Simulated assay, not measured.
Amino acid sequence: MSDFRETSASLLVLSNVPDEKVAAEIAHRLVEQRLAACVNILPAVRSVYRWPSAVEEATEVMLLIKTVQSRYADVEHAIKAMHPYDVPEIIALPIAAGLPAYLEWIAKTTRDDDV
């Protein structure tokens, strides 16, 4: 069995989507399925990137997804299933520190059971 601290380590997952509709659908699904405690939707992010060999620019909507390490694979799977891009941005960053009560809330909210 994994160490609770390892599996409940908080993560911030970043993903950009093309519009508010897709953002809301992904956010609601992640929270409803207890894959994320909270998803912030930030509008009007301007992205400059190379795809496949040309420099492109697009206005996107950014998702800031708060979850735990043990739920990351499910979060990634859910985003990929709903995301319209061929290669969606899905980046997980460890949360090194935070208000203990908030981090505990993330861990409790993303548990499979209703404890």
Rank of each mutant, 00 (worst) to 15 (best):
E104T: 13
I106P: 03
A73F: 00
A92M: 03
T59L: 13
I26Q: 02
R46K: 14
V31G: 11
A58G: 15
A101N: 12
K66M: 06
A97P: 07
K66Q: 10
Q69F: 03
A24K: 03
E25V: 07
V75K: 04
V45M: 15
I90W: 03
A9G: 14
G98R: 14
S70Q: 10
D86A: 15
V75H: 03
R5V: 09
Q33P: 00
P84R: 02
A44V: 00
S15Y: 02
T110N: 01
K108Q: 13
I26V: 13
E89L: 12
P52S: 07
P84I: 04
R111Y: 10
V87L: 12
Y102I: 07
A37I: 03
H83N: 05
A96L: 15
A81C: 02
V13K: 06
R111G: 15
M1V: 08
V45A: 15
H83L: 09
I79G: 00
M1Y: 08
E76D: 15
L14S: 10
A36C: 14
A44Q: 14
I106R: 03
D74E: 15
I95W: 09
S47K: 01
L63P: 03
Q69W: 04
R46Q: 13
V22F: 00
D74W: 10
L99W: 05
S47A: 14
D19G: 13
M62D: 07
P43K: 11
D19F: 12
Y49G: 01
L12Y: 11
V22H: 00
E89N: 01
V31H: 07
R46F: 05
V48E: 04
R50W: 01
Q69L: 06
H28W: 10
I65H: 05
P18F: 05
P84K: 04
L11H: 09
E89Q: 03
M82N: 02
K108T: 13
V45F: 10
E60N: 08
A27S: 14
Y49C: 02
K108S: 15
P94F: 12
D114N: 05
L35H: 03
S10L: 08
L42Y: 10
T110G: 12
E32Q: 14
A24M: 11
D19Y: 09
L93V: 09
A73T: 11
P18Y: 07
R34L: 11
L35T: 06
D112C: 08
T109V: 11
P100T: 09
T59Q: 07
L93D: 08
V55D: 02
S10N: 15
E56L: 01
M82V: 10
L35A: 07
D114K: 09
L64Q: 12
P94L: 05
M62R: 08
A54G: 06
A9P: 11
I91A: 08
L64N: 06
I106C: 07
L103H: 11
V39A: 11
N40Q: 12
A37H: 11
T109Y: 05
V48K: 08
E32G: 11
D3V: 14
E76H: 08
V39L: 12
A107R: 04
Y102R: 09
E6Q: 14
T110I: 04
V61G: 00
